[in-house]
Design a protein around this nucleic acid. Structure first.
Lengths: 340, 340
DNA sequence: CTGTTAGCGCATTCAC
DNA sequence: GTGAATGCGCTAACAG
């Protein structure tokens, strides 16, 4: 159906091998005159190499897989953009899979990528990798076959990747908030089975403890906007009795959660930050358009993605790098006047 | 290196053909006892079919390509999520390419997808498709080889896709704004070479004209947040002299642009909507967290993506559907009290 | 430097 | 119902 290399070779009056050599720089360089003829033939016929056939013959697809939880979530889409940028014009193609936070779909995605013989798989927003899922075994067998795994978040012992030091980042963030004068904290901790949300919550509380403070409440729920919205709504309902209320600072383990929490707070007629201060984590791009500006711990999301992409290209197997976020206090955590 | 079907066949003591038949339902059904043995062997060895080899033998990859301008833009990431959902568990894999609004990169992306022999290519946020780029020729040759093209936005004569009726949508939006009492309009028209932004601006102005109104200003610029930010900043600088100012309504041809414009307005010390009303287009998910809530024309972005995905699966070649957006007036376009 | 040939891993006619 | 053989389109030895 499509034009094959053979067709090009015939058109140019050369052998298949020669055509192959000119159309994809091999070690041996065919004569200039021949090369031109082949290229002209390819152009004329509208030849496109069959990537599958090439992959089969070369034992290397130039394919990599990226698995995210939800590509529409700014956190992941920013990382995805970074990955694309990191891949640059290397000719490597990106296969994308979304899991919707379903561990089974994550496994399906990895299997699919293994079938595609991707050179590498970037895992971001993975679920409880510490547990003995089938995922671990899959990953191992992928690596045994020469596949590279890059994990964004909490790399495994056997994998490279970008390690986000959630604990330290959260500690620093808590420190800044305390320094700013906050004393009463609530933690929207998200899913306690997720390494990421757990690490963030724990780091935060560890710092409180070391300062002689303790969170007045720690609420678990889904690691999502909706989860935070519901958790916050419940919380607010629960403390309607306790008026009048002093300003409390709610730490949400992600910006997306902070947005959900703010929504709940507003719907209950309270103001941010005057009644309740809110703090997030990640510094997703979305925040620039939100009022009040939201305090958070900034992660260089796009760069993280870019590093992951570059890591893949350089075959930096099992190379690890550590990223610690930077606390950024903005309007949403401003202390109420009377507390200053 | 990896386990091949041959290995599985040997392990199970059957022929290659039989192994193939059980591992991927063919017409002939091998005996149950044999099937179990093969499956057990595959499981034991950790066999993963080589998608490239399958594609080559079957002459069909289960691959589709999606090209967007920027995967981190909520407009595109929402569509991308929809496409994923539309693909569901069909086993079709998604290849993603971002063009950064560069026509050349768009062509590169399509070429890459053609090489990958994707069954279909979904083009969203394409540039000036009406012009005689190489893109047209590429698309044609892709179609000639059995490839399916689905365009989101402005399908070509030869392609199917989701046609967004920007003109009508903008007209309706303008109508609603006029009905609400607005009379003085400025249009941030974006890039006049892009079908999308042009259609939106023209539809809006057409409606104004038919109502006996005319935009006091039409400003072109980049079809992006930055473009709108700069355009709006310039505009505000230009009319500093004209105080006191009556409320003007700024129509931005996309929500992302509206966000940029609002930023510029605020930085100049003015308020939305009291001093300047702002209206966008798309209703990207991001808007739910923005204050004031932004008026816009709602497009079912995720569904559009889903439809595109389903269209691909059903081989709905050249099927077209038309989508018209719904005006949604919110706080950002509220009329100033004195004008009511 | 160029052409011939043998696989890459699998699906699929064909025979049995 | 099962196995042997052929070819998908291309690369990479291997000869010439």
């Amino acid at each position: 159906m499509a034009i094959r290399l053979t067709d090009v070779a015939n058109e140019a009056g050369v052998s298949l091998a020669t055509a192959s050599r000119v159309l994809n720089g091999s070690a041996r360089k065919p004569a200039a005159e021949i090369s031109d003829r082949v290229r002209a033939a390819a152009e004329k016929l509208g030849y496109f190499p069959n990537a599958q056939a090439q992959a089969l013959a070369r034992a290397s697809t130039k394919l990599i897989g990226l698995v995210v939880r939800d590509i529409a979530d700014p956190y992941f889409s920013t990382i995805a953009r970074g990955v694309q940028r990191g891949l640059g014009d290397s000719g490597t193609q990106l296969l994308l899979a979304s899991t919707d936070s379903d561990p089974e779909r994550e496994i399906e995605a990895v299997k699919a990528f293994m079938s595609q013989r991707t050179d590498a798989i970037i895992l971001s927003g993975s679920r409880a990798l510490s547990e003995d899922d089938g995922l671990l075994r899959l990953i191992e067998s992928y690596q045994d076959n020469g596949g590279q795994i890059v994990v964004i978040g909490q790399p495994l012992a056997s994998t490279g990747g970008i390690h986000v030091d959630n604990e330290t980042t959260s500690e620093n963030l808590a420190g800044e908030l305390i320094r700013a004068g906050h004393r009463k904290f609530v933690v929207l901790a998200g899913d306690e089975n997720l390494l990421t949300s757990r690490g963030r919550a724990q780091g935060f509380m560890a710092k409180l403890k070391r300062t002689g403070l303790v969170a007045v409440d720690v609420i678990h729920g889904a690691f999502s906007r909706e989860g935070a919205y519901m958790a916050m709504s419940d919380y607010l309902k629960g403390c309607e009795a306790t008026e009048p209320r002093e300003q409390v600072c709610v730490f949400c383990v992600s910006d997306v959660m902070a947005l959900g929490a703010i929504r709940a707070i507003r719907e209950s007629g309270l103001r941010v930050p005057q009644d309740i201060a809110v703090v997030g984590f990640d510094d997703i791009p979305t925040l620039v358009d939100v009022t009040p500006s939201i305090s958070t711990a900034r992660l260089p999301l796009e760069e993280i993605g870019r590093w992951a992409g570059e890591m893949v290209l350089s075959h930096g197997d099992a190379r690890k790098m550590v990223v610690t976020g930077t606390p950024v206090l903005r309007e949403s955590s401003e202390l109420r006047a009377e507390n200053r």
